[in-house]
Computed example of a mutant assay.
Amino acid sequence: MGIYQFGQSVSRIFISTSYKVEIIGKENIPDTGATILCCNHIHYFDPPLLGAYIKRQLHYMAKQELFEKPILKGLLPKLGAFPVRRGMSDKQAIRTAMKLLKEGKMIGLFPEGTRSKNGQLGKGLTGAGFFALRTDAVVIPCAIIGPYRTFKSLKLVYGTPIDFSELRERKASAEEATEVIMTEIKKLIEEHELKS
Rank of each mutant, 00 (worst) to 15 (best):
G113A: 14
K99W: 03
F14L: 10
M88F: 12
G113D: 12
E169P: 00
V157F: 05
S18H: 04
S116Y: 02
L109S: 12
I13E: 02
D90N: 08
Q64H: 10
C38F: 09
S11E: 06
E103H: 00
A132M: 08
A52V: 00
K186I: 00
I54A: 08
S116V: 00
G33D: 12
T96K: 05
I144T: 15
C142T: 06
D136M: 01
V180N: 05
G33V: 15
L50N: 01
E190W: 06
D46V: 04
R134Q: 15
V84N: 14
N118E: 11
S173W: 04
M182D: 08
T135M: 04
I185K: 07
R170D: 14
K63A: 15
E184F: 01
K105C: 06
L37N: 15
E191Q: 15
G51T: 08
D31M: 13
G159I: 10
A174T: 08
P161S: 13
V21L: 09
G87A: 13
L156M: 11
M182E: 11
I13Y: 07
G33E: 14
M98E: 09
M88R: 12
P161W: 02
Q64W: 08
M106I: 11
K187G: 11
E22S: 15
L72W: 07
E193K: 10
Q92W: 04
P141D: 10
G51F: 03
Y4I: 07
Y19T: 07
